[in-house]
Computed example of a mutant assay.
Amino acid sequence: MVDVSVIVPTYNERENLPVLAKRLDKAMGKAGISYELVVVDDNSPDGTAEVARNLKLEHGKVKVVVRKDERGLASAVMKGFEVAEGKYFVVMDADLQHPPEVVPELVKRLKEDCDLVIASRYSKEGRIEEWNFVRKVISKGATILAKLLVPATKYTTDPMSGFFALKREVVERAKLPLNPLGYKILLELLAKGSFEKVCEVPYVFGKRLAGESKLGGRVMLEYLIHLMKLAKETGELNRMLTFAAVGASGIVVNEGALYAVYELLGAKSLGALGLAAAGLAGFEASVVYNFLLHERVTFKDRRKGSVVKRFLHYEAASVLGAAAQLAFLLGLTYAGVHYLISNLIGIVVGLGIRYSYSATKAWPA
């Protein structure tokens, strides 16, 4: 039985695979690590599987699986898990943007005290070579969505990484069935895997040696669907819907307090100042009401530490959300968008900010 199984899903990577195999073998040999290279190919038309079979004849450390009826990186990795013999798994791409020389360090951390080790482009010493502005924006947006919908991504600076290592038990003892979609298998493992400690190793995300990037509209759509699926399976989607429902019910409290202060308590006689004071009272009443419901319902499983600190964080979330809503209302209306549409967009953005801040600061996972 080998020590490590390096799982590499491929599609049209015939030029990259021999270089990867050579560099990986040198790095693992230098570190004294026994390993196998598991190539899971989706029946590439460029002959990648044949190249892999030739590598098996040359090195004897290569296992080749060709899938003819399935497609997708994440499911290919899952197939690799099934056939792998190692105690430890390493997942990486074949395009050499994931440097094989980093693999021994990932394995070293597993053997020390980590269950899952993520090679991060965004940690202190990591970086990305030659990404354009659009690609950086897409990656940043995808990371923010992951942090919002999959709380377990808090353990890493790079939840979108496709380069990581894990103990076999993380997969075999998963808390929920693993059923990944698209390209981001790491999200599935973070959300459902069985682990106690997640570690990071910085690396430089290099240039693709040959072939074309698989990123496209379909991949991005699959990513969004995968995120929503994970949010539903882990209960985070229900939490978000509950948060929105509580916020909607808070509107009644807001309006009621506004009316009471303005009409019944006489603030109306003070003119604009009275209206502002009544509006502030209505806002604060809804904040208190919403906070109490979130404590009892939405985040009842995350009440940690001081209730005062939780309330202050929620207050800040509410203020930020209200400011964002007002900014979108004024900005978009000024730009020519109908004020009702502008306000609706502001409400959605404000809700997202309230939830994100609340879920990460007031009631962190």
Results as ranks from 00 to 15, higher is better:
Ala210Gln: 03
Ile118Thr: 03
Ile144His: 04
Ala142Asn: 11
Val201Ala: 04
Gly141Trp: 06
Leu106Ala: 01
Ser139Met: 11
Leu230His: 07
Leu181Lys: 07
Glu112Phe: 11
Lys167Val: 08
Ala146Trp: 04
Glu125Gln: 14
Arg121Glu: 11
Ala174Pro: 12
Leu215Ala: 13
Asn132Phe: 00
Phe164Ser: 01
Gly216Asp: 15
Leu106Met: 03
Leu178Glu: 05
Arg121Gly: 04
Lys124Arg: 15
Leu96His: 05
Val204Met: 08
Pro202Asn: 09
Leu148His: 06
Phe195Pro: 04
Val201Leu: 05
Ile138Phe: 13
Gly216Arg: 06
Thr157Leu: 13
Val102Lys: 00
Glu112Asp: 15
Trp131Pro: 10
Ser120Met: 06
Ser194Lys: 13
Ser213Ile: 04
Asp93Gly: 15
Trp131Leu: 13
Ala210Ser: 14
Arg218His: 13
Pro104Glu: 01
Asp115Glu: 05
Glu105Ala: 14
Lys167Trp: 08
Val117Asn: 04
Val134Gly: 03
Leu230Ala: 02
Tyr223Ser: 11
Thr153Trp: 04
Cys199Tyr: 07
Leu148Tyr: 10
Asp158Gly: 01
Ser161Val: 02
Glu188Thr: 10
Thr153Gln: 03
Gly193Tyr: 08
Tyr122His: 14
Lys197Pro: 00
Pro104Val: 04
Glu212Tyr: 12
Val219Gly: 00
Glu222Lys: 15
Tyr183Ala: 13
Asp115Met: 07
Ala146Lys: 01
Val204Phe: 00
Arg109Met: 11
Lys140Gly: 04
Gln97Gly: 12
Cys114Trp: 00
His226Asn: 15
Val219Ala: 13
Tyr223Trp: 12
Tyr223Ile: 06
Pro100Arg: 07
Leu96Tyr: 00
Pro104Met: 03
Ala142Gly: 12
Ser161Pro: 02
Leu227Met: 12
Glu105Arg: 14
Gly217Leu: 14
Tyr203Phe: 15
Asp158Arg: 00
Ala165Pro: 05
Cys199Ile: 09
Val102Leu: 06
Leu189Ala: 08
Glu200Ile: 01
Pro177Asp: 01
Val134Tyr: 08
Ala146Asn: 08
Val107Asp: 03
Ile138Met: 13
Ser139Cys: 09
Asp158Tyr: 08
Thr156Gln: 03
Leu96Val: 04
Ser161Cys: 04
Asp95Ala: 09
Leu181Ala: 02
Glu200Thr: 02
His98Asn: 15
Ala142Gln: 11
Glu222Phe: 13
Pro159Phe: 04
Pro177Ala: 02
Ala152Asn: 09
His226Ala: 14
Ser161Gly: 05
Lys111His: 10
Arg121Gln: 10
Met92Leu: 15
Ala191Phe: 02
Thr143Gln: 11
Glu188Leu: 05
Gln97Met: 14
Glu172Lys: 11
Ala210Met: 08
Val134Leu: 14
Gly211Asn: 06
Val137Asn: 05
Lys232Pro: 00
Phe205Cys: 09
Pro100Cys: 00
